[in-house]
Write a protein that binds this DNA or RNA. Structure first.
Lengths: 257, 257
DNA sequence: GCCCCGTGAACTGTTGACACTTCTGCCACG
DNA sequence: CGTGGCAGAAGTGTCAACAGTTCACGGGGC
């Protein structure tokens, strides 16, 4: 029996249009794993937890379904969608090609203030202050960095990229192995910030693509080592060109990582 | 005063879960321009038109909003979102890089049956049978061709590509200038089919990218000639490489278009 | 012992009604 | 003549209740 998850959510205060709050709360619980894949969630129970009627909950469910976080068959309880290597690969492939493009057009437009912010965040990512290492906090900063990277790519692209990044978070958390240390590649962020400052759009985009695909390949190897990531490799080729991501390339070394 | 569009939609038969039907009907009306940009649509009126209560309509509205087809401020009537060159450029940029990738991985996987279908559709696109030329019918086939091209790229990618293609349809119709003739580039489809048959993934992807970006540039030039499509050009560069789309490239000629 | 069907609980989809907000048009007032 | 504000209409967000569906469970028949 799938755990028909229960537990009281804080009631929605008193505001009008409660759907966004419900949606975001559930979304967060799914992304962080509080609501595990396969768990069944009923409109009635969620409504009760929020102290609200089923109307707004139904609307929130529709949004979560359109985002791909839950499956909702007619006349059945909704279920938190499961994880799969295929989806993980798709998500990262989308991120690789789209974020590379978004970064390419953003680089010439960064303000001095934004560049300084990137530098600062990158430094924090490399040398997190607190001991012991707090993965939650680090990942928060990490998401902020990647989000700022795409600042000037337009609202539509930004929204999509945010969604994809959020969804990959699900996999990162599920397979973080207890989050016991700095993820490999954490140091690359300072190189990226540097390339942005140098207005090297091509170099920055390439480094981002390698950065993302390394994360993806690491995860895939952990989850299902036999899986052959055809789509992801094609995505990498599209961004980096046919030569492939074999050795550290020119712009990477130049950035002095 | 914005036209608070009215008019009776056929009542939803008697099925359970009416939301999808309502959503699709409204979506189609927006995409084809029956519901013009800026038009205001009220839950109450739509509900009456469908012979249904406001509940399902609200859910449909939420989906349409998440898709970006309507704007829905709290306590206000929803409005059909307007058109803009920026969005058009974004849509086509997304299509260029994502469909190119999707096609790249699809090419090795086409069955003989699918290849034959592509050939056939491409031929119809080049020499449409009926006189006078029926744009609606032609565009139907056109969408079918592009959809089949991505058949093997996985459900998530397919869904996204379909959505983007559908949205560009809005612009194509709005600026079709009466749809009085075969769009330029219509002949390229047979070359694409040919490249698929030859299992030339790279060539097919490049041709698709050029095909899409030409359509985009034509539309942009019609709508707002002063607009400089920075994002789109970056997208083209990402797929074709730095040399740019200057001359007809090797694989294009080899396909003997 | 095994299978089938009826029954009731748990849910979902839908509806009509209620409270509150926004906007329009009009009137009194300056 | 211009302006401020005040009712009423129109619309939205929400809720509680109704009807139909799915599923688990147990009793009866074989």
């Amino acid at each position: 029996m799938a755990t028909t998850t229960s537990g009281s959510r804080g009631g929605v205060p008193r505001g009008r249009d409660n759907t966004p709050a419900i949606r975001e709360q559930l979304r967060a619980e799914i992304l962080t794993g509080t609501l595990v894949p396969g768990a069944e969630i009923s409109q009635a129970r969620i409504a009760a937890d929020f102290g609200v009627s089923r109307g707004p909950v139904r609307e929130a469910f529709r949004l979560l379904e359109s985002e791909g976080l839950i499956d909702a068959r007619v006349n059945h309880r909704a279920r938190v969608r499961g994880l799969s290597v295929h989806e993980l690969e798709h998500l990262y492939s989308l991120r690789v090609i789209n974020e590379s493009l978004a970064l390419t057009v953003s680089v010439p437009l960064f303000s001095e203030h934004e560049l300084a912010e990137l530098d600062e965040l990158a430094e924090v990512l490399r040398h997190p202050g607190d001991e012991p290492f707090d993965f939650e906090e680090w990942d928060q900063v990490h998401q902020g960095f990647h989000e700022r990277l795409l600042a000037h790519s337009g609202p539509r692209m930004l929204e999509l990229a945010d969604e994809w990044a959020a969804h990959t978070q699900r996999y990162r958390r599920a397979y973080a192995e207890g989050g016991r240390g700095l993820p490999p590649g954490a140091a690359e962020h300072v190189a990226m910030a540097r390339l942005c400052r140098d207005r090297d759009a091509r170099g920055a985009a390439h480094l981002l693509a390698r950065h993302l695909s390394r994360a993806a390949l690491t995860l895939i190897a952990q989850i299902e080592p036999t899986h052959e990531p055809v789509l992801l490799r094609a995505a990498i080729r599209q961004v980096l060109g046919p030569e492939g991501p074999s050795r550290p390339s020119e712009e990477h070394r130049r950035a002095g990582a």
